[in-house]
Design a protein around this nucleic acid. Sequence first.
DNA 1: TGCAAGGACACAAACGATTGCGGTCACTGT
DNA 2: ACAGTGACCGCAATCGTTTGTGTCCTTGCA
Lengths: 342, 342
Amino acid sequence: MERVKLTDVARAAGVHPGTASRALNPTTRDQVSRETSRRVLLAAQRLGYVPNTLARGLRTARSYVVGMVVPDITNPLFPPMVRGAEQVLSGAGYTLVLTDTDNDAATERRQVEQLRARGADGLIIATARWEDPLLDEIAASGTPTVLVNRYTASRRLPYVGGDERTGIRLAVDHLVEIGHRKIVYVAGPQDTSTGRERSAAFRQAVRSHGLPSPARLVSVANAYTEAAGAAATRKLLDTTVDFTAVMAGNDLIALGVLSVLGERGIRCPEQVSLVGFNDLPMFDKISPPLTTVRLPLGAIGGLAARTLLAEIEGTGDEDAVVQSLLGVELTLRGSTGPPPSD
Amino acid sequence: MERVKLTDVARAAGVHPGTASRALNPTTRDQVSRETSRRVLLAAQRLGYVPNTLARGLRTARSYVVGMVVPDITNPLFPPMVRGAEQVLSGAGYTLVLTDTDNDAATERRQVEQLRARGADGLIIATARWEDPLLDEIAASGTPTVLVNRYTASRRLPYVGGDERTGIRLAVDHLVEIGHRKIVYVAGPQDTSTGRERSAAFRQAVRSHGLPSPARLVSVANAYTEAAGAAATRKLLDTTVDFTAVMAGNDLIALGVLSVLGERGIRCPEQVSLVGFNDLPMFDKISPPLTTVRLPLGAIGGLAARTLLAEIEGTGDEDAVVQSLLGVELTLRGSTGPPPSD
DNA sequence: TGCAAGGACACAAACGATTGCGGTCACTGT
DNA sequence: ACAGTGACCGCAATCGTTTGTGTCCTTGCA
């Protein structure tokens, strides 16, 4: 089954390929008589013509491809974002190319190069580190790009994410409200914006409630994983501080906290309350169901895509959005309760 | 920053673009003197040349793109497969285009058309239904394609999956071994190969143990979701059959079973044991941790990609693999135990 | 009737790579 | 010395579109 090409359509309609092209393209259709364009459309329909995107891209220097770079698609944080982005992109006639860097900078560089070779019209990047030379290069190269989930120190690229500060504040407010005074924080890695932002927000929230300065009350996990969360929690438990609630840098870290509490025989929420961050799928099913801050992941992906499209197709005269934060909410579940009444 | 093209490299190396092309391509490099190819390689390196995939694809009718079609990337079944596939594809210089059909046939058709317009060299499809006209068309069109996770009645396309029959048998054997005699099955939708295959395997396993014919012991969920699993479980509980163990069509259905058991005050595993299928991430964290059949999802994705590549680049003289089944294992966790001693 | 204006279309040149074909040149064997 | 043989490389066509520049013909107006 030979692919039918523009020439075939043109021949069938009795016109020149150039004319057929104009007739098919809505924005140039008015350069062609109604009658002719009708014939061309009909012929295209009848022959089942579908334009060759490669040829078009070669000529127009537009690929209608956008690349999305995630560190690990297996991490439940990303599928909803990917999905949100994919839906708006494919709705706009774009194709999403997904690449999984496996958390490896070299792989990431290779992937991005691949994407540029493909002539990707834009990039959505979810792997930003606080200091990220690759992203600075991308920013310098002028390729339309938007960051999701994390941003960089240099802030040279637009960013779409959740309102993390508010999320942390809501969580801390809740803990304080039900009676907690001794709250510790198991932070995420500080080479990511989320790690820094949430840590800062935690310190600020604690201070605003007049609670003791949390210098010793923070332990940093070196990755957003259960294992790293567990390690950081052990460190915390091995110091002398005592506490009745722990705020985790994200849900996966919370998982680590939970497992360490379990192995030390500390009951949650009876003895220690726990709050996570992200509200990943399935975290309502674990035991105890995790109280956590819900981020609208799908919406973040979708908005990132829309922001990117605006930048790609942008007329340029309107001011570009540099940062968008979406609202978050606290989801109350079984992992938080009043502190033990000693 | 203008993209450097082949012409630039050629000029820098003082040769014709055609020669440069040959020098750059490993398979044609021997048509060029060592000295010349060295100069060309060096120039390419120095200028940071990265070939324009669109132009190459246009000329060679090869896009080095393969499309992967999944019903819902948010379903934890798929990310590991996607990841497995992506790793072998990008290792082979291919790019993975991911499309999420949102479980909608019309969307799927549109997406596949998009992919073919892009000149995708092949397709990996995870959305197969038992009767699937779109897939028959694809098979007829000759586009290299491999099915993962599910296959079609017509079996016209190669398939890579797990050894489901064995998985079910292992699970039933285990239940019988710890003393269960009254085992029911909450099946997945019967318009998928997995739904049918697993149901058949269940019947066969039960028969082989000399247990009563399971005609009334099977309830069919109309989707692989928690809600559908819950509905099917209620139907089962509202009949008069009693049972001490339930085998679920997959983990998500098992989730539905669990929630209905909870709402009826039936304790798992003390009163009823439960076995799932797939061993999705996080199902070791729920309460009780789910005993389930582990499918090597990443490996399935990877093997699908390799099978596809063989078909794409295939010399054609070797016999094509039509079906590959990967080994599965039973993961024992807290949701199964001996039946109550009445 | 003549002329300008402009609508509708055809022509052909791009886009950036690959590749069949053929030409040049050095070298070999007789 | 000359034909033959390869190795090496340049030339130009080609992939399927889009789009700038012509050309023709119709139309309107004086």
